[in-house]
Nucleic acid binder design. Sequence first.
DNA 1: TCGATTTCTTAACCCAGGTTAAGATACGTC
DNA 2: GACGTATCTTAACCTGGGTTAAGAAATCGA
Lengths: 192, 192
Amino acid sequence: MFDRLKISLDRLLPVTRDEFMYFATLLTPRRLAKHESLLRGGEVCSHIAFINQGCLRYYYLKDGDEYNGQFFFEGAWVGDYQSFLTGQPAVQYIDALEDTELLVIKRTDLQALYAERPVFERFGRLLAENIVIGSQRRTASLLFDTPEERYLKLIAERPKVMERIPLHHIASYLGIKPESLSRIRKRLADNR
Amino acid sequence: MFDRLKISLDRLLPVTRDEFMYFATLLTPRRLAKHESLLRGGEVCSHIAFINQGCLRYYYLKDGDEYNGQFFFEGAWVGDYQSFLTGQPAVQYIDALEDTELLVIKRTDLQALYAERPVFERFGRLLAENIVIGSQRRTASLLFDTPEERYLKLIAERPKVMERIPLHHIASYLGIKPESLSRIRKRLADNR
DNA sequence: TCGATTTCTTAACCCAGGTTAAGATACGTC
DNA sequence: GACGTATCTTAACCTGGGTTAAGAAATCGA
């Protein structure tokens, strides 16, 4: 049950068996059915979740339309950082895109863990730093890549997204409408 | 010389006078003239800098065009996170937009500080977490706000940017060309 | 198994931002 | 004070994504 978590943690920084066991006691398993939601906008994000199996997305709602911010697969952590850290209502919605198994940790338990075990404080820093890198890459791509370029990069860099996620969700992630993604795909198929 | 830094640190988390003094010994003052660069793409970002006075931007270069990622003013930290953390060549360029005074810390010194003083490990986490929040907000705005909406939000939320930064740099930050920003401004001036 | 829903595509028309070119101010600096 | 540069604007034309509408194909659920 905790195998994937151990591997995922160790990739960021090695923890002793003892420290890991303690961490594991703070985690609660949770299952989400496909399309079930982990967090709704307006709620406070009081937990973050490690994905043991499955796939989720977070998205924003504006004028009734959804805009996919990011997709997450097994081995990643999900949560609304802004809400989790500040205690303010979430602006993000988080849904499962497949039947999903999570390991969930409460905000207050994580805060206490940071204070008690320095190695996890470091883990928190490394995790946040890695998220910064990913988020800045995404910002840069939205700033200066065309939708077509973003689509091609997605195919090249994140095959899992192409394999497991419907095209209309991908379009939303790319910042365009499904019809436009179809058009781009046709353009590319008619070899440019 | 360290007053603004102390205030800025304390806002994230309080440090004792003693801890602060130790931190200060790791910092080197540095001045940049307007338009001088702190980091060029391709270099490794081996330092991060606290802005004591002045203003900088980081930008990306693509096909000879600059794309402004972010602006920073006194009280903020600047650096290419991706390069600083991974040791890979920077993809960002960092320039001063005004004559600027910095306090610079070396990567290796900061790493050592994290290991020696837990309070700074925590500081590093909190700083990274705050950057995540800012970066995700920016991503979201690029994803679903129109350029006009982004411009209006910038006026409302970041008056310093409007006061101190040329419009063509603001256009680049908004993801549009200077001519388009002029058009948007005209549209708004002709009251909608 | 069969109707309903989800997913994906196509096409016609519209529009905001890009491109190109030009000109007006303001700013520096020698 | 004058020349060059940086900043900002305007306008005509172009283009790629949005909108609307429709239909085909795959999947789901009862």
